[in-house]
C-alpha cells in the first residue's frame, strides 16, 4: 500500500466517492485529521494511478456533498423536525417520512440518494 498526501481543503466523504469512481480497485480509502488528508492506494506505486488520483483531487470541490452525505443531512433534518412530535400527531406524509428514515438508519431500506 502507498500513500498520497493531499495539501488542500477537502470534503472527505465526497472526495472518497470521487476517488473510488476514478481509481476503482487501486483505491483503499482516505483518512483525515490534524488538518491533513492522506489517500491510500494498493499495489505498487505507479505513475498512471498517481496521475488519475491527482486529477480527481484537483477537480474535487469541497463544497459538494456525496450521496451519503446528502442522505445523512436529510435524515438529520427529519429527525430534528419529527423527533419531538408524537406519532399520533403526525400526518400520513410525516409518518411515511419517519418510517423511511427509521428503516434507512437500521439498514432495512436504501436511502433514495444512493439508489441507482
Amino acid at each position: 500500500m502507498w500513500e498520497l498526501k493531499v495539501d488542500r481543503e477537502v470534503n472527505a466523504g465526497a472526495l472518497d466517492a470521487e476517488l473510488r469512481k476514478a481509481l476503482g480497485a487501486s483505491y483503499v480509502g482516505l483518512s483525515t485529521g490534524n488538518g491533513s488528508c492522506v489517500v491510500y492506494l494498493q499495489g505498487e506505486r505507479d505513475e498512471a494511478t498517481l496521475k488519475l488520483a491527482e486529477a480527481a483531487i484537483a477537480a474535487h470541490d469541497p463544497t459538494s456533498l456525496s450521496p451519503d452525505q446528502r442522505a445523512e443531512l436529510r435524515q438529520d433534518e427529519a429527525r430534528s423536525r419529527l423527533g419531538k412530535k408524537a406519532f399520533a400527531a403526525m400526518s400520513e406524509a410525516e409518518r411515511d417520512e419517519a418510517l423511511q428514515v427509521l428503516l434507512e438508519l437500521h439498514g432495512l431500506a436504501l436511502p433514495p440518494e444512493l439508489e441507482g
Binding site: M1, A12, V28, L30, S31, T32, G33, V38, Y40
Partner: peptide, 18 residues
Amino acid sequence: GNANYSTTSTSFVDVDSS
C-alpha cells in the same frame, strides 16, 4: 489525539501517526 479523525480506508491505517 488532538483532532477529529475520519477514515474510509478498508485496510488498517494509522489513526494519527504523530
